[in-house]
Computed example of a mutant assay.
Amino acid sequence: MSAAIIIPARFASSRYPGKPLVELTGATGERASLIERSWRAATSVSGISEVAVATDDPRIERACIEFGARVIMTSPDCQNGTERCAEAMAHLTESADIVVNLQGDAPLTPAWFIEDLVAGLRDDPKADVATPVLRCDGAALNGFLDDRKAGRVGGTTAVFDANKHGLYFSKEVIPFTTKHYEDADETPVFHHVGVYAFRPSALDAYPNWPVGPLERLEGLEQLRFLENGNRILCVEVEARGRQFWELNNPEDVPRLEKMMAEMGIA
Protein backbone atom coordinates (compact mmCIF):
# COMPACT_ATOMS: atom_id res chain seq x y z
CA MET A 1 0.00 0.00 0.00
CA SER A 2 1.41 3.37 -1.01
CA ALA A 3 1.47 6.34 1.37
CA ALA A 4 1.88 10.07 0.73
CA ILE A 5 2.39 12.95 3.17
CA ILE A 6 0.61 16.29 2.84
CA ILE A 7 1.64 19.19 5.11
CA PRO A 8 -1.21 21.73 5.40
CA ALA A 9 -0.08 25.26 6.19
CA ARG A 10 -1.92 28.56 6.45
CA PHE A 11 -0.66 32.04 7.23
CA ALA A 12 -3.78 33.42 8.92
CA SER A 13 -3.69 31.46 12.17
CA SER A 14 -5.98 33.04 14.76
CA ARG A 15 -3.64 32.21 17.64
CA TYR A 16 -0.34 32.84 15.86
CA PRO A 17 -0.55 34.66 12.49
CA GLY A 18 2.33 33.83 10.17
CA LYS A 19 3.30 30.78 12.22
CA PRO A 20 4.57 28.60 9.30
CA LEU A 21 7.24 31.19 8.46
CA VAL A 22 8.46 31.69 12.04
CA GLU A 23 12.13 30.78 12.19
CA LEU A 24 13.52 28.38 14.76
CA THR A 25 17.20 28.13 15.70
CA GLY A 26 18.60 24.62 15.76
CA ALA A 27 21.43 23.09 17.76
CA THR A 28 24.09 24.34 15.32
CA GLY A 29 22.72 27.87 15.20
CA GLU A 30 21.03 27.36 11.83
CA ARG A 31 17.74 29.21 11.46
CA ALA A 32 14.97 27.63 9.40
CA SER A 33 11.25 28.26 9.19
CA LEU A 34 8.70 26.08 10.94
CA ILE A 35 7.31 24.86 7.60
CA GLU A 36 10.80 23.93 6.33
CA ARG A 37 11.53 21.99 9.51
CA SER A 38 8.19 20.18 9.18
CA TRP A 39 9.01 19.35 5.55
CA ARG A 40 12.42 18.00 6.61
CA ALA A 41 10.68 15.78 9.16
CA ALA A 42 8.34 14.45 6.45
CA THR A 43 11.12 13.70 3.99
CA SER A 44 12.96 11.62 6.62
CA VAL A 45 10.08 9.09 6.80
CA SER A 46 10.72 5.81 5.00
CA GLY A 47 8.25 4.20 2.62
CA ILE A 48 6.61 7.47 1.53
CA SER A 49 5.92 7.97 -2.18
CA GLU A 50 5.41 11.77 -2.13
CA VAL A 51 5.62 14.79 0.19
CA ALA A 52 3.78 18.04 -0.61
CA VAL A 53 2.88 21.25 1.22
CA ALA A 54 -0.74 22.38 0.83
CA THR A 55 -1.40 26.09 1.33
CA ASP A 56 -3.51 28.98 0.11
CA ASP A 57 -0.90 31.67 0.78
CA PRO A 58 1.65 32.86 -1.82
CA ARG A 59 4.15 33.79 0.91
CA ILE A 60 4.24 30.20 2.13
CA GLU A 61 4.32 28.96 -1.47
CA ARG A 62 7.41 31.09 -2.24
CA ALA A 63 9.20 30.00 0.90
CA CYS A 64 8.54 26.32 0.19
CA ILE A 65 9.71 26.55 -3.42
CA GLU A 66 12.94 28.16 -2.20
CA PHE A 67 13.84 25.20 0.00
CA GLY A 68 12.75 22.65 -2.61
CA ALA A 69 9.30 21.48 -1.52
CA ARG A 70 6.45 20.64 -3.87
CA VAL A 71 3.47 22.95 -3.22
CA ILE A 72 -0.21 22.33 -3.92
CA MET A 73 -2.28 25.51 -3.83
CA THR A 74 -5.68 25.09 -2.18
CA SER A 75 -8.76 27.17 -1.51
CA PRO A 76 -8.75 29.81 1.27
CA ASP A 77 -12.14 28.41 2.30
CA CYS A 78 -10.65 25.27 3.89
CA GLN A 79 -11.66 25.34 7.56
CA ASN A 80 -8.78 23.25 8.85
CA GLY A 81 -5.81 21.14 7.85
CA THR A 82 -7.86 18.03 7.19
CA GLU A 83 -10.08 19.84 4.69
CA ARG A 84 -6.95 21.24 3.06
CA CYS A 85 -5.48 17.73 2.78
CA ALA A 86 -8.74 16.46 1.30
CA GLU A 87 -8.58 19.09 -1.44
CA ALA A 88 -4.86 18.55 -2.07
CA MET A 89 -5.23 14.75 -2.27
CA ALA A 90 -6.75 15.06 -5.76
CA HIS A 91 -3.57 16.83 -6.95
CA LEU A 92 -0.99 14.31 -5.78
CA THR A 93 1.29 13.09 -8.54
CA GLU A 94 -0.02 9.54 -8.02
CA SER A 95 -2.99 8.28 -6.00
CA ALA A 96 -2.05 6.84 -2.60
CA ASP A 97 -3.65 4.09 -0.51
CA ILE A 98 -2.96 6.07 2.67
CA VAL A 99 -2.67 9.85 2.97
CA VAL A 100 -0.84 11.31 5.96
CA ASN A 101 -1.58 14.77 7.34
CA LEU A 102 1.58 16.01 9.05
CA GLN A 103 0.57 19.32 10.52
CA GLY A 104 2.98 22.12 9.78
CA ASP A 105 3.49 23.04 13.43
CA ALA A 106 5.06 19.74 14.50
CA PRO A 107 8.68 19.77 13.27
CA LEU A 108 9.91 17.48 16.05
CA THR A 109 7.74 14.57 14.89
CA PRO A 110 10.10 11.56 14.67
CA ALA A 111 10.00 9.51 11.49
CA TRP A 112 9.04 6.33 13.34
CA PHE A 113 5.86 7.96 14.66
CA ILE A 114 4.58 8.21 11.08
CA GLU A 115 5.97 4.84 10.05
CA ASP A 116 4.18 3.16 12.99
CA LEU A 117 1.04 5.09 12.18
CA VAL A 118 0.92 3.94 8.56
CA ALA A 119 1.64 0.34 9.62
CA GLY A 120 -1.15 0.49 12.23
CA LEU A 121 -3.74 1.65 9.70
CA ARG A 122 -2.66 -1.01 7.21
CA ASP A 123 -3.17 -3.69 9.89
CA ASP A 124 -6.58 -2.53 11.17
CA PRO A 125 -9.24 -2.83 8.44
CA LYS A 126 -11.91 -1.49 10.82
CA ALA A 127 -10.18 1.86 11.24
CA ASP A 128 -10.82 4.80 8.91
CA VAL A 129 -8.16 7.06 10.40
CA ALA A 130 -5.09 6.51 12.56
CA THR A 131 -3.26 8.92 14.83
CA PRO A 132 -0.34 8.49 17.24
CA VAL A 133 -0.53 8.81 21.02
CA LEU A 134 2.36 9.05 23.44
CA ARG A 135 2.05 8.07 27.10
CA CYS A 136 2.95 11.07 29.27
CA ASP A 137 5.55 10.86 31.97
CA GLY A 138 5.08 13.08 34.99
CA ALA A 139 7.12 15.90 33.50
CA ALA A 140 4.95 16.05 30.36
CA LEU A 141 1.70 15.80 32.33
CA ASN A 142 2.76 18.52 34.75
CA GLY A 143 3.66 20.71 31.77
CA PHE A 144 0.13 20.25 30.41
CA LEU A 145 -1.38 21.12 33.79
CA ASP A 146 0.84 24.20 34.12
CA ASP A 147 -0.30 25.40 30.69
CA ARG A 148 -3.96 25.03 31.64
CA LYS A 149 -3.46 26.86 34.95
CA ALA A 150 -1.83 29.72 33.05
CA GLY A 151 -4.71 29.85 30.56
CA ARG A 152 -2.59 28.59 27.66
CA VAL A 153 -3.75 26.02 25.13
CA GLY A 154 -1.14 23.29 25.34
CA GLY A 155 -1.14 19.77 23.99
CA THR A 156 -4.16 17.59 23.23
CA THR A 157 -4.90 14.40 25.17
CA ALA A 158 -6.72 11.24 24.06
CA VAL A 159 -8.70 8.38 25.59
CA PHE A 160 -9.45 5.15 23.73
CA ASP A 161 -11.09 1.74 24.14
CA ALA A 162 -9.56 -1.73 24.51
CA ASN A 163 -9.09 -1.95 20.72
CA LYS A 164 -7.22 1.38 20.73
CA HIS A 165 -10.12 3.06 18.91
CA GLY A 166 -10.48 6.67 20.03
CA LEU A 167 -13.28 7.58 22.44
CA TYR A 168 -12.47 11.29 22.76
CA PHE A 169 -9.78 13.93 22.23
CA SER A 170 -9.58 17.12 24.28
CA LYS A 171 -7.49 20.20 24.95
CA GLU A 172 -8.25 19.57 28.60
CA VAL A 173 -6.19 16.97 30.40
CA ILE A 174 -8.11 13.67 30.30
CA PRO A 175 -8.61 11.31 32.02
CA PHE A 176 -8.87 13.35 35.24
CA THR A 177 -6.64 12.21 38.09
CA THR A 178 -6.00 13.66 41.54
CA LYS A 179 -2.67 11.85 41.92
CA HIS A 180 0.58 13.81 41.82
CA TYR A 181 3.23 12.35 39.50
CA GLU A 182 6.97 12.91 39.77
CA ASP A 183 8.76 13.79 36.53
CA ALA A 184 9.90 10.24 35.76
CA ASP A 185 6.61 8.54 36.72
CA GLU A 186 4.43 6.78 34.16
CA THR A 187 0.96 8.32 34.00
CA PRO A 188 -2.44 7.26 32.59
CA VAL A 189 -2.58 10.31 30.32
CA PHE A 190 -1.78 10.07 26.60
CA HIS A 191 -0.57 13.03 24.57
CA HIS A 192 -2.21 13.09 21.17
CA VAL A 193 0.39 13.77 18.50
CA GLY A 194 -1.09 15.92 15.72
CA VAL A 195 -0.47 13.56 12.81
CA TYR A 196 -3.16 11.62 10.94
CA ALA A 197 -3.23 8.81 8.40
CA PHE A 198 -6.42 8.51 6.38
CA ARG A 199 -7.98 6.03 4.06
CA PRO A 200 -8.78 8.16 0.99
CA SER A 201 -12.51 7.41 1.25
CA ALA A 202 -12.67 8.84 4.80
CA LEU A 203 -10.63 11.90 3.87
CA ASP A 204 -12.75 12.53 0.79
CA ALA A 205 -15.97 12.40 2.85
CA TYR A 206 -14.72 14.73 5.60
CA PRO A 207 -15.37 18.16 3.96
CA ASN A 208 -18.96 17.16 3.21
CA TRP A 209 -19.85 16.70 6.88
CA PRO A 210 -20.99 19.74 8.86
CA VAL A 211 -18.93 20.94 11.79
CA GLY A 212 -20.41 19.24 14.86
CA PRO A 213 -20.79 20.65 18.37
CA LEU A 214 -17.76 18.83 19.80
CA GLU A 215 -15.43 19.98 17.03
CA ARG A 216 -16.75 23.51 17.43
CA LEU A 217 -16.27 23.54 21.21
CA GLU A 218 -12.82 21.94 21.32
CA GLY A 219 -11.46 23.29 18.05
CA LEU A 220 -10.18 19.78 17.24
CA GLU A 221 -10.72 18.72 13.64
CA GLN A 222 -10.44 14.97 14.31
CA LEU A 223 -13.64 15.04 16.36
CA ARG A 224 -15.62 15.40 13.12
CA PHE A 225 -14.69 11.81 12.29
CA LEU A 226 -15.94 10.55 15.67
CA GLU A 227 -19.11 12.63 15.43
CA ASN A 228 -19.87 10.94 12.10
CA GLY A 229 -19.25 7.38 13.26
CA ASN A 230 -15.74 6.85 11.87
CA ARG A 231 -13.18 4.87 13.83
CA ILE A 232 -9.88 6.52 14.74
CA LEU A 233 -7.12 4.08 15.65
CA CYS A 234 -4.84 5.44 18.37
CA VAL A 235 -1.37 4.03 17.73
CA GLU A 236 0.82 4.12 20.83
CA VAL A 237 4.31 5.24 19.85
CA GLU A 238 7.57 5.35 21.80
CA ALA A 239 9.58 8.51 22.35
CA ARG A 240 12.95 6.66 22.34
CA GLY A 241 14.45 9.57 24.24
CA ARG A 242 13.08 12.19 21.88
CA GLN A 243 11.17 15.20 23.14
CA PHE A 244 8.06 16.32 21.29
CA TRP A 245 6.05 19.53 21.28
CA GLU A 246 3.92 21.43 18.80
CA LEU A 247 4.24 25.13 18.19
CA ASN A 248 0.87 26.49 19.31
CA ASN A 249 1.79 29.86 20.83
CA PRO A 250 4.70 32.35 20.58
CA GLU A 251 5.78 31.13 24.03
CA ASP A 252 6.50 27.71 22.50
CA VAL A 253 9.36 28.99 20.32
CA PRO A 254 12.03 28.96 23.06
CA ARG A 255 10.68 25.63 24.31
CA LEU A 256 11.13 24.03 20.88
CA GLU A 257 14.55 25.62 20.41
CA LYS A 258 15.66 24.26 23.78
CA MET A 259 14.45 20.79 22.80
CA MET A 260 16.28 20.95 19.47
CA ALA A 261 19.48 22.02 21.24
CA GLU A 262 19.19 19.16 23.75
CA MET A 263 18.53 16.60 20.99
CA GLY A 264 21.18 17.96 18.61
CA ILE A 265 18.70 18.76 15.85
CA ALA A 266 20.31 21.21 13.43
Rank of each mutant, 00 (worst) to 15 (best):
Cys64Glu: 04
Asp57Cys: 14
Gln79Pro: 12
Trp245Cys: 09
Cys64His: 01
Pro125Met: 07
Val129Glu: 02
Ser201Cys: 15
Glu83Tyr: 06
Ser170Arg: 07
Gly47His: 00
Gly18Pro: 10
Asn208Glu: 10
Pro207Ile: 04
Glu246Pro: 07
Ala32Thr: 08
Asn249Phe: 07
Cys64Pro: 05
Gly120Phe: 10
Phe244Val: 10
Leu217His: 12
Pro107Gln: 04
Pro254Thr: 07
Asp77Gly: 15
Gln103Val: 15
Thr156Asp: 10
Pro213Met: 15
Glu66Arg: 13
Ala111Ser: 10
Asp57Tyr: 02
Glu221Asp: 12
Leu220Gly: 06
Pro20Phe: 01
Leu226Pro: 01
Asp56Ala: 13
Pro110Leu: 01
Ala54Met: 05
Phe190Trp: 02
Thr157Glu: 01
Val153Ile: 13
Arg152Pro: 01
Ser49Leu: 09
Ala3Pro: 08
Ala63Asn: 00
Val51Gln: 00
Pro20Glu: 09
Thr82Gly: 05
Ser14His: 13
Met259Gln: 04
Lys171Pro: 06
Pro107Arg: 03
Ala130Arg: 05
Phe225Gly: 04
Ala266Gly: 13
His191Val: 04
Arg122Cys: 12
Val118Thr: 05
Lys149Phe: 13
Gly47Leu: 00
Ala69Phe: 05
Gly212Lys: 10
Met1Leu: 06
Ala3Thr: 12
Ser201Met: 11
Trp112Cys: 10
Gly241Pro: 06
Pro132Glu: 06
Met260Trp: 00
Asp124Ile: 11
Asp185Ser: 10
Arg135Glu: 05
Tyr206Arg: 02
Asp97Ser: 09
Trp39Val: 09
Leu167Trp: 10
Lys19Arg: 09
Ala86Ser: 10
Gly155Glu: 07
Pro200Ser: 04
Ile7Cys: 08
Gly104Lys: 01
Met263Asn: 02
Glu87Leu: 14
Asp204Ser: 14
Thr131Gln: 02
Thr74Phe: 02
Val153Pro: 02
Leu145Pro: 00
Ser95Glu: 14
Val237Met: 03
Arg231Asn: 05
Pro213His: 14
Ser38Asp: 06
Gln243Lys: 15
Lys126Cys: 12
Cys64Ile: 04
Ile232Lys: 06
Thr25Gln: 03
Gly219His: 00
Met259Ser: 05
Arg240Phe: 05
Lys258Thr: 13
Glu172Trp: 15
Lys258Cys: 13
Arg62Val: 15
Glu218Ile: 06
Arg240His: 13
Ala32Phe: 02
Ala266Pro: 15
Glu251Tyr: 13
Val211Leu: 13
Thr74Cys: 15
Ala130Tyr: 01
Gly241Trp: 08
Asn163Gly: 14
Asn249Gly: 02
Thr187Ser: 02
Gly166Leu: 15
Phe198Asn: 00
Leu223Thr: 03
Asp204Gln: 14
Leu117Arg: 02
Gly219Thr: 03
Ala266His: 14
Asp137Met: 08
Met89Gln: 01
Leu203Ala: 01
Asp97Ile: 03
Asp252Asn: 04
Ala205Asn: 09
Phe160Ile: 03
Asp105Met: 07
Pro200Ala: 11
Glu218Trp: 11
Gly68Thr: 01
Arg59Gln: 12
Arg62His: 09
Val53Met: 02
Leu21Ile: 13
Ala162Glu: 12
Arg70Ala: 07
Glu115Asn: 02
Ala27Gly: 04
Leu117Ala: 04
Glu236Pro: 08
Val253Trp: 02
Asp146Ile: 12
Asp161Val: 06
Ile265Leu: 15
Gln222Cys: 12
Thr131Ile: 09
His180Asn: 15
Ala96Gly: 06
Pro210Leu: 04
Arg70Ser: 12
Met263Gln: 07
Val195Asp: 00
Leu214Asn: 11
Ser201Phe: 05
Tyr181Leu: 11
